[in-house]
């Protein structure tokens, strides 16, 4: 029992995710069928990929508000370039590298100038939206390859596995992130910096390199999410990532990673992604209108965070 109490903040999000699935399956007939489960996994995977970099930046003590803008940039750049005949194998890596560069600049400026990353990433987002407009003048004609659409299709298959490629990619990303967080120097530095940035510097952790690399990872993964969303929506839309500002932050916090950093993990964010997707599906399934859905979602987020998201910051526990 003591073991459960001590790990309640880790167990609770997963227990809630499983409980929510069972409740929804019991309340809504047909929810437990294969198509519904694949829908849940696909939508969670898109959110999960977009939330991965956000989790790491928050653990490190930062925050990345440029996620929706980088998603929009990647979506537009990929779809417009492909529409003009550029190979997806050429434009895809270019777009991801562009996301990495944007992220690296975010981290570099935030750390070298000691400016809160919230402000820097918000400014970067504004610059990106302006740049998209300056380049396209709102005329975002583009298209996406069929293979990419299948990759993010509810009924897509990955070889013999009856799941779309996006879900498999998310699974691989989870493995990489768990190893990155637990077994790599970068992971240890991130936790140390989030727990106490001053102490981390005294321990000779190269904070400038750390922030640049972590934000670069966030930018790169946002770009990957942007490409996937181009495939999902079959369109070039700079606003495609707008919904992912609130939801990526919510997934991280609901998963149990404190917004002030120093603790948490991407594994918890996975639970957060499932909880958000399941909650919205449950509310839609119950026939609640948009206003009632928003109110209910807001209440549930507060309740969940109140249950297991009020730990004292690591720095204060020493």
């Amino acid at each position: 029992m003591n073991w459960v109490r001590q790990r309640l903040d880790v167990i609770a999000p997963f227990a809630i995710a499983i409980g929510l699935f069972l409740i929804t399956a019991a309340v809504i007939p047909g929810y437990g069928n294969l198509t519904s489960i694949r829908s849940l996994l696909l939508l969670s995977s898109l959110l999960g990929i977009a939330s991965a970099g956000q989790t790491l930046t928050i653990i490190m003590g930062g925050i990345d508000l440029s996620v929706p803008a980088v998603i929009g940039l990647a979506c537009v750049a990929f779809a417009v370039a492909y529409g003009e005949g550029v190979s997806p194998w050429v434009i895809g890596p270019i777009v991801i590298v562009a996301g990495i560069v944007v992220g690296a600049v975010n981290g570099l400026i935030s750390r070298s100038l000691r400016v809160n990353s919230l402000i820097v990433t918000l400014a970067t987002a504004t610059i990106i939206y302006g740049a998209i407009w300056a380049q396209t003048k709102g005329d975002n004609r583009g298209s996406v390859p069929d293979g990419l659409t299948d990759f993010v299709s509810v009924i897509g298959w990955t070889g013999p596995i009856p799941l779309p490629g996006s879900v498999i990619l998310w699974g691989a990303l989870v493995l990489v992130f768990v190893i990155l967080e637990r077994r790599s120097v970068l992971g240890r530095w991130s936790y140390a910096s989030g727990a106490n940035p001053g102490a981390a510097e005294l321990a000779r952790i190269p904070s400038l390199v750390l922030w640049t690399v972590v934000f670069a990872i966030s930018g790169g993964l946002s770009a990957v999410a942007g490409i996937l969303l181009a495939g999902f929506s079959s369109a070039a839309n700079p606003q495609v990532g707008d919904a992912y500002l609130f939801t990526t932050l919510s997934a991280v916090v609901i998963g149990g990673t404190p917004i002030i950093g120093g603790r948490g993990s991407y594994a918890r964010t996975i639970a957060g992604c499932f909880i958000i997707t399941e909650l919205t599906m449950l509310l839609i399934g119950l026939g609640l209108d948009e206003a009632a859905q928003q109110v209910s979602l807001g209440i549930l987020i507060i309740v969940l965070v109140a249950i297991y998201g009020r730990e004292t910051h690591v720095r204060m526990q020493i």
Partner: peptide
């Protein structure tokens, strides 16, 4: 009025309304 949002919401609705 957004392709990605409308598709996401439609997928959710269809998954919960057999």
């Amino acid at each position: 009025w957004n392709e990605a949002t409308s598709k996401t919401e439609m997928v959710k609705w269809l998954a919960t309304h057999p």
